[in-house]
C-alpha cells in the first residue's frame, strides 16, 4: 500500500506572537509540524506497524524552513519526503495549496492521501476536500479513526459528525482529513531523529510540476489576507475567594442582578 500525508509547517499558536501594522511578525515565531498533520502521520504509522507493507511518503509545499516539519515526520517513521519548495509560495491560500498538490499528485500512484482537518494557524480546513474534488476521488473530513481493509482496497473512516460518530467506507484511492482526536502523535526517539537525516528528502520545484509561477502563491490564490489584528480582549472580570456557599450566593446575585442572565 502507498500512503501520502500532506504536511504543513505552521507557527506554534500556543506561543505569544506580535502583530504590527496589520501584519503578523514572523521573525519571532516558532514553526512546527501542524498538529493535525502529525496525527495523520501517526495514524499511518500505526497502520504501517500493523500492515508492514505500507510505504509512507510526506509532501509539503512551502519555504526552505519547511524541511524541519518534514524531518519531524521522517523522524516519527515515514519513509521519504517531497518538499515542493519555492519562494513564490509566500501568501498561498488553501486554493493555491490545493492547485500545487493537485499538480504533484496527478501522476503519482497512491491508495490514500491523508491531510490534517485544518491548519492550526489559518483554521481553514479546505485543502483536503478541494484536492479530492480536483483529483476526482472521494474524501471524508474530521476523521477520528481509520481501519484499512487491504483486500477490499478500502478504508473505514470514523468521523465526528453532527449526529454522532459516523462510519463511512471509502474505496481507494481517497483522501481523509484527520482530527487530532484520532491519536497522540509519538515524539521521535533519538534514533528516529538520527535516521531521519538519511531518509530521502526529494526537492520538487514549481517548474517540475509544470506550473507557472503565477498559478501559485498570492496570484494563484482566490482570497487575499488584508490584515490581522488582536481581537478586542475580554477583560478579566471579578474573582471571588472564600467559602463555597458564599461564592455561590455571590455568583447567583451577580448573574441575576448584574449580568441578568438568570
Amino acid at each position: 500500500m502507498k500512503f501520502f500525508v500532506c504536511c504543513k509547517q505552521v507557527p506554534d499558536v500556543a506561543m505569544a506572537f506580535q502583530i504590527k501594522d496589520g501584519e503578523l511578525q514572523k521573525d519571532d515565531l516558532n514553526y512546527v509540524l501542524n498538529a493535525y498533520d502529525a496525527s495523520a502521520v501517526e495514524e499511518s504509522l500505526v497502520i504501517k506497524d500493523a500492515v508492514s507493507e505500507l510505504d509512507l511518503s510526506l509532501v509539503l509545499m512551502g519555504a526552505e524552513k519547511g524541511k524541519e516539519a518534514l524531518r519531524k515526520g521522517l523522524a516519527m517513521g515515514a519513509n521519504d519526503a517531497f518538499h515542493i519548495e519555492d519562494d513564490a509560495f509566500e501568501g498561498s491560500d488553501s486554493h493555491a495549496a490545493a492547485n500545487v498538490l493537485e499538480a504533484f499528485f496527478k501522476d503519482k500512484e497512491y491508495d490514500a492521501i491523508l491531510c490534517g482537518k485544518q491548519s492550526q494557524d489559518m483554521d481553514m480546513g479546505l485543502t483536503g476536500g478541494l484536492l479530492a474534488e480536483k483529483l476526482n476521488i472521494p474524501y471524508v473530513t474530521n476523521a477520528v479513526g481509520l481501519e484499512v481493509n487491504e483486500e477490499a482496497k478500502s478504508i473505514l473512516v470514523t468521523r465526528q459528525g453532527d449526529a454522532g460518530q459516523e462510519k463511512v467506507e471509502l474505496s481507494f484511492p481517497c483522501i481523509v482529513s484527520c482530527s487530532n482526536d484520532m491519536n497522540e502523535p509519538r515524539i521521535p526517539s533519538l534514533r528516529g531523529i538520527m535516521q531521519s537525516k538519511k531518509k530521502p528528502m526529494n526537492k520538487v520545484s514549481v517548474a517540475d510540476l509544470g506550473l507557472a509561477t503565477d498559478a501559485v502563491g498570492k496570484s494563484g490564490s482566490k482570497s487575499t489576507l488584508l490584515s490581522m489584528d488582536f481581537p478586542k480582549a475580554r477583560k478579566a472580570g471579578e474573582k471571588f475567594e472564600g467559602e463555597a456557599s458564599e461564592l455561590v450566593s455571590t455568583l447567583i446575585d451577580k448573574l441575576t442582578n448584574e449580568a441578568k442572565v438568570l
Binding site: I187, P188, S189, I193, M194
Partner: peptide, 9 residues
Amino acid sequence: EDSFVATEV
C-alpha cells in the same frame, strides 16, 4: 549526515 542536533530528547 552523522552529526546531530536532537531536540525533544
